[in-house]
């Protein structure tokens, strides 16, 4: 895979990875972004701020691709990224896409569906981030999530981490 140009920033890499001009998800751009998140000192914090903004794009394709980038980072950028998505500072940006108090009435159904699927997947797969569970439960309590999605990308979290043998 070609490595990203050193002049690129997280922002320019994200713009490429989420461009509405991309015909399909461009995994080279997406992985370049993930690599940069892993390299930069404050990569997880900065990327979550950029992603929180990008996934609220009024352009459906851009928003959906931003959510795909978030998923890719959760898979590839480890615990420090998980800690960032596990903060309300980021989770609130997802909540805004669903709640009618914010962007919920304007968000495309496809975006809302993907956000709910992701939160559902994370609350099961990232139990060490309790705020994700709290947010998901509140969405259900408020009736914004009627039932758990049937979709779950099992490739994310194939099984719970094995217990250490010497526990």
């Amino acid at each position: 895979m070609a490595s990203a140009d050193e002049n690129e920033t997280l922002e320019t890499l994200l713009n490429k990875a989420t461009s509405p001009m991309n015909r399909d998800e461009d995994w080279e751009y997406i992985m370049n972004f993930c690599d940069r998140v892993n390299i930069e000192l404050e990569g997880p914090e900065i990327s979550c701020r950029l992603l929180g903004h990008k996934m609220q794009s009024p352009q459906e394709r851009e928003a959906l691709q931003a959510l795909t980038v978030v998923e890719a980072c959760v898979k590839n950028c480890g615990e420090s990224f998980h800690r960032q998505v596990g903060k309300f500072r980021f989770l609130n940006e997802m909540i805004k896409l669903i709640s009618p108090k914010y962007l919920g009435t304007k968000s495309p159904e496809s975006v809302k569906k993907k956000v709910i699927e992701m939160l559902y997947s994370w609350q099961a797969g990232l139990p060490q981030e309790p705020k994700i569970i709290e947010a998901y439960q509140m969405l259900k309590k408020q009736g914004l999530v009627k039932e758990d999605p049937v979709y779950m990308d099992k490739a994310y979290f194939p099984s719970p981490a094995p217990r250490p043998k010497n526990a």
Partner: peptide
């Protein structure tokens, strides 16, 4: 408070 503690204290879920 340290930065992390302060950030944690200010990290709240939005009312829906």
């Amino acid at each position: 408070l340290g930065f992390d503690e302060e950030e944690e204290r200010d990290d709240h879920m939005l009312p829906m």
